[in-house]
Structures are given as C-alpha cells and as structure tokens.
C-alpha cells in the first residue's frame, strides 16, 4: 500500500509520543547533580555530593540491601511456583484448568490497595506484619502470575510428543521434567524471573501497608523522600534506578538476540 500523508504525520506523532514516555524521567539526572541542599536544578556548578551520600548513608544502603533480599527471594519463590503451576495447568489442559488459570492471574489486576488490605488482615494474626517473611510472601503472590504467563507462553510452543517420547523411553516423571520440559521452556522461566524481580523491587503500595520500621525497602524510602519533597538524594536514587532498568533491559535484549541467533 502507498503511504499517505496521514501515515507520515502519524509516524512522526508516534515517535514524539514515545519520547514523551521516556524523556521526562531523565529530569532526575540534572536534579541529582545540584550542589544545593534542596531539590533544584543546578545553575552553573555540578556536584556529586548527593550520590556520595546515597552510597555512604547507612539508611539508604540498608534499604538497597533489604530491597535486594526481598526481591531475590520473592522472584525465586514466584518463579518456582509460577513455573510448576504453568506446567501443571498445561498437563491438565481442561476447562477447569483454564478457570483456575484465570483465577490465579487475579493478583495482577486486583487494585494494589485492595491487595494491601487483604495482606494486612491476614498478616496481623500471623505476626508477619513488618517482617521479611511477610513482604516476601506478599510479593510472591503478586509476582508469581507473571511467571505463570511467561512460562505458559513458552509451553504453548512445546511439542507434547517430546514429553511422551521421554516417558516411553523409560524416563521417570521427575527426569522428564528436569531433562526435557525445563530446558525447552527456559526462556519463559528466565523472563518470568526477571519480571518477578522487577515487580517486587518496585512494589510500593502493599509495602506501605505491611511494613513499618524493621523493613524499610528502597521504594518506601523514595516514597518518603518524594513526600517530604526537599532532599535531592531522592533524585540520585531515581537516577540509579533508571540506570538499573536500562542495564537490565539491555541485558534482556542482548540475551534474546543471542537466543534467536542460536535457534536459527
């Protein structure tokens, strides 16, 4: 089809819109370099003092560490649960299975404020409020549906006859799972793990309700910083988060390129 004037205008508009989606976040970079003690744009001189503070203050460092522990633990648990669940539902492949799948995706779309209420209600009697275990369990429930989706997508392209062949050749259930199924769905499992990690690492609303003093994650500290709206350390933290996102994204893209190459 010949490209009309409309298509050209729309294409330009789309590029502008995409830049509008990404560029505003970059304002954090100049703000983080201000030499002043309050949030401001640097005028003539730049300073790294806020980064220095970010990486030496015990509070910020402990928040980085806590977020990393919680995100790694929840991503591990969520990936395991989501992967097993996806394989199970794929084996079951029935109407009831699809209903259960739809139900298990709900934590993704139920408003986080409602999830927060729910976790609060159940964690108070269990004594899990403001504990690592509580946050890890809550983040696992919220993140496992992501692994369920990515692994299910991988399984959709997996030839069921391979599993039957493995069983016919005498492999046990466990061996088949370990040597045949898991290797061929590895891309889905890895993608699920990365998404689950990000979901936990960024999670704020549920965290606000079920943590208090003991556990103080990075998003929680940034949230407080934003609410106080004075300390430029928040801008430095935002810059670090943007860089982590970019590095993770580049790594994922490179990995999937390499995989695509090795497949052909």
């Amino acid at each position: 089809m010949k490209k009309g004037l409309f298509e050209h205008i729309n294409r330009t508009a789309a590029w502008i819109l995409l830049l509008f989606l990404v560029l505003p976040a970059l304002i954090a970079i100049p703000v983080s370099l201000t030499p002043k003690r309050f949030l401001s744009m640097p005028t003539d001189t730049f300073s790294l003092r806020h980064f220095r503070y970010l990486f030496t203050s015990p509070e910020w460092l402990s928040s980085f560490g806590q977020s990393a522990i919680i995100a790694i633990a929840s991503a591990g648990l969520a990936t395991a649960l989501g992967t097993f669940c996806a394989i199970g539902l794929w084996r079951v492949s029935s109407k009831a299975g699809e209903a259960v799948r739809a139900f298990l995706l709900l934590p993704l779309v139920i408003p986080p404020i409602i999830s927060a209420m729910a976790f609060y209600r159940v964690f108070v009697p269990m004594g899990l409020l403001d504990t690592y275990a509580g946050l890890i369990l809550a983040h696992t429930v919220l993140a496992a549906p992501l692994a369920l989706i990515t692994v299910s997508a991988s399984l959709a392209g997996f030839d069921q006859r391979l599993e039957q062949a493995s069983r016919n050749l005498g492999a046990s259930n466990l061996t088949t799972m370990r040597r045949v199924i898991l290797p061929s769905i590895r891309p889905g499992v890895l993608a699920g793990a990365v998404f689950a990690f990000i979901a936990s690492w960024d999670e704020i609303v549920v965290t606000l309700f079920i943590s208090k003093f003991n556990v103080y994650t990075l998003p929680r500290r940034i949230w407080n910083g934003i609410r106080e709206n004075t300390d430029p350390t928040v801008a430095a933290a935002a810059v670090v988060l943007i860089f982590i996102t970019l590095i993770a994204f580049t790594a994922m893209t490179v990995a999937s390129r390499l995989r695509a190459k090795s497949d052909t």
Binding site: F84, V92, P107
Partner: peptide
Amino acid sequence: LSPGWILVAPFLALVLTLFLGPIINV
C-alpha cells in the same frame, strides 16, 4: 484427577490462604 494438579496446588493454596481468604474477610 490429572496429576498436573499436584503442580498447581502450591501456588493455588498460597493464593487461597493469603489472597482470596482475606479479601473475603474484607
């Protein structure tokens, strides 16, 4: 029952106890 349900059970149990239950409570 299909043996696949055994693999579904852990996550399903977690969602029922930590998510659906307390939502009904709310």
